[in-house]
Structures are given as C-alpha cells and as structure tokens.
C-alpha cells in the first residue's frame, strides 16, 4: 500500500521536477555572479558618468578595469562548469565580489563625485591606484626595506626565543638564571627600549633589528618553555624504556610535543613585532613602510597613506598566512586546528 503510493508519487512528480527547477538551479548557481557583474558595472559607470571633483588621471582606466572585472565575473560564474577549479572558486567568492563592487561604487560616489566625505582626507579609489602606478619605485623600496628588517629581526628573535625556551623548560639550572631575567625584562614593551637602543647600537638598522627580535623573542621563549614544561612524563618514560638518550628526549620528544605551543608563541611574537617595526621605522629608520606613512602624512599625501596601509596589511596578513601554512604542515597530526 505504502510502496504503491510512493512509486505513484515519484512517477507523477518526475516531469515537473525536470522542467521548472532548471531556471531555479541556474539562478542559484549563477545568480550571485550576475549580481557581482552588475555591481562592478555600477562601479564602472560611477567612475565615468559624472565629472571628477578633483584632478585624478586614472579615473578613466579604473572605469574600464571595472567593466573588465564585471565581464570576467559574469563569464566566470555563468560558464563555471567549463572552467574547472577556477570557475568553482569564482562562484564561491561571488558574494564577496558583489560586496566589493557595491563598496567601491559607494566610495567612488561619496568621494570623487559628490565629496560627501571631506576630500583631502578621504581620497577616491583612482587616486590610490595612481599611487601604485606613479609612486611605485619608492613604495617598492619601502616594502623591501620593511621586509628585510622584519625578516632579520624575526628570525633572530624566533631562533633565540626557541632555543632559550627549550633550555629553560629542560634544564633546571638554566631556568634558575633565566627565569628572573625573563620576568623582569620580558613584559616591558619592546618600544620602551627605543631611545636606549637608538644610541647604544651603531646603526638605526641594527637597533631596530634588536627591538624586533626582542618583541618576537619574548612570547616565543615563554610559550616554548611552557610547551616543554607541560610535556607529559609518560612520553619520557616510554622513550626511556625504549632506550632513548637525553638528546633523543629533547629533540624527538620534548620539542615535537611542545611545537603547538611554539606556534602560538610565534603568532604572538609576529604580531608584536609588526607594531615595533612600524614604530621603529617612523622614529628612527629612514626607510620602510612605516617611514613612508610618516612621510606621506608630512606632505598631506593621504592617498599615499592609504596605499601604504593596504600594502602593509597585505604583507602582515601574508606573513601570518605563511606561518599558519608552515604550522599546518608540521602539525598535520593535530586535529581541529584553527584555519587562518
């Protein structure tokens, strides 16, 4: 009885489900893509329709670029089935494209066209594009200087922090001497050392490297130490009964077991070091993105400031992404880790 009614329902329902949902499926899959395309077309029109209130040279190109992106969004999402993983990725990010297009349109209209936001302080998108095209060499120099300083300081700080953290966690004698020093100096913000560092070190570059290393090193030390200290004795017992020597216990038991903590320390250290980097560049070092920001502010070049901020955030986010990628590789054995 029930079987009969079930098959009956299926038979009569079949033709209906095959015709009408074709449109529904299409709208569900490509609708957002079409919306994204409309948003970017709106952005393009907002660039070209009205006259600029100021003198910006990239308005026209930006409008054209917006139309190109609109076309890519439309073709990419509608034809996603033929584009493989690129198409799938575009479809997945289509809602973000809609939001971005709408935001840029609003920004364009509110600044360059009607100046709802006071103008020199809120530059339109085209003036930021202008910075990237016209002031590129100086910006690249600054990026290079910042990355060099950051990388050097961070590597030194992370290495020293890791080694001292393991030593403190492992050896009672090292802990006896290092712990009070760490307690006394560690919580001091690295930027507090700025005045002393800049006259004790031979160059502002070495002083900044020291400060960045300090900012990175403290959290790495503390978390590595706590990681090593919290390794369960059972692991050591197992390794010892299997014939492990002390070096094996440190390198193959304590360190791998502490690694999740170490990465938390590196994450915190990296964050602290960004702050020190920018301050050091603003105050002492005559290069880098921090200095560029300061310089731009001095000339009231607000578009340059925003441009530099965007680059800076991309770099910092990139550094954290890289750190998480390394962590995910090294800690594949952990389950339920936070995705960045």
């Amino acid at each position: 009885m029930s079987t009969y009614s079930l098959s009956d329902g299926l038979a009569s329902g079949a033709p209906r489900t095959s015709r009408a949902p074709w449109l529904a499926t299409w709208i569900r899959e490509s609708g957002v893509g079409v919306l994204a395309s409309i948003a970017w077309i709106a952005f393009g029109f907002s660039c070209l329709w009205w006259q600029d209130l100021g003198d910006w040279s990239r308005t026209h190109s930006l409008g054209i670029a917006a139309f190109i992106i609109a076309a890519i969004a439309l073709l990419g999402t509608v034809g996603a089935d033929y584009l493989g993983s690129a198409g799938r990725g575009l479809r997945q990010r289509a809602p973000w494209l809609v939001a971005l297009g709408a935001f840029l349109t609003l920004w364009e209209v509110a600044t360059a066209k009607f100046a709802w936001l006071p103008l020199p302080f809120f530059p339109p998108p085209q003036s930021i594009i202008e910075v990237y095209t016209d002031d590129l060499p100086k910006l690249l120099d600054s990026v290079f200087a910042s990355v060099k300083l950051q990388l050097g300081g961070c590597l030194i700080g992370a290495t020293v922090g890791f080694v001292s953290g393991v030593s403190i966690g492992w050896s009672r004698a090292v802990g006896y001497w290092a712990h009070p020093v760490l307690r006394f100096i560690g919580p001091l913000p690295a930027t507090a050392w700025l005045p002393i560092a800049f006259f004790t070190f031979p160059s502002s570059w070495s002083a900044s490297t020291f400060l960045i290393a300090l900012a990175t090193g403290f959290p790495v030390t503390v978390l590595t130490w706590s990681g090593v200290a919290s390794v369960s004795n059972a692991y050591y017992d197992v390794a010892r009964t299997l014939g492990a020597k002390p070096s094996f216990l440190v390198l193959k038991v304590a360190i791998p077991a502490a690694l999740p903590h170490v990465f938390v320390g590196l994450f915190m250290g990296l964050g602290a070091s960004f702050a020190v980097l920018v301050v050091a560049e603003m105050i002492g070092v005559k290069a880098g993105l921090g200095w560029y920001l300061q310089w731009a502010q001095g000339w009231a070049a607000y578009a340059n400031m925003y441009a530099a901020l965007i680059v800076m955030s991309l770099l910092c986010s990139g550094a954290i992404t890289l750190l998480f990628a390394i962590r995910d590789r090294l800690l594949v054995w952990q389950k339920g880790t936070v995705k960045w």
Binding site: S232, A234, Y235, D237, V238, A239, T241, L242, G243, A244, K245, F248, K252, V253, P256, A257, L259, L331, W333, Q334
Partner: peptide
C-alpha cells in the same frame, strides 16, 4: 630496551604516525 613496558594508556606519540611510533625504540 630488553625490558619494555606497555602502560595502561597507550601513550602513543600523537605527532608520529603509527609506523613511526612502532619504530621509536629502534630509532632511539
């Protein structure tokens, strides 16, 4: 290693695969 203990908890090293866990003694 001529006297090996198996504890109440397996205490496998979570960062090592099964093979690497078994290889622990020979590696040490």
């Amino acid at each position: 290693p001529s006297r090996v203990v198996v504890f109440q908890d397996p205490t496998l090293f979570p960062w090592r695969s099964v093979w690497d866990n078994v290889a622990l003694g020979l590696e040490a």
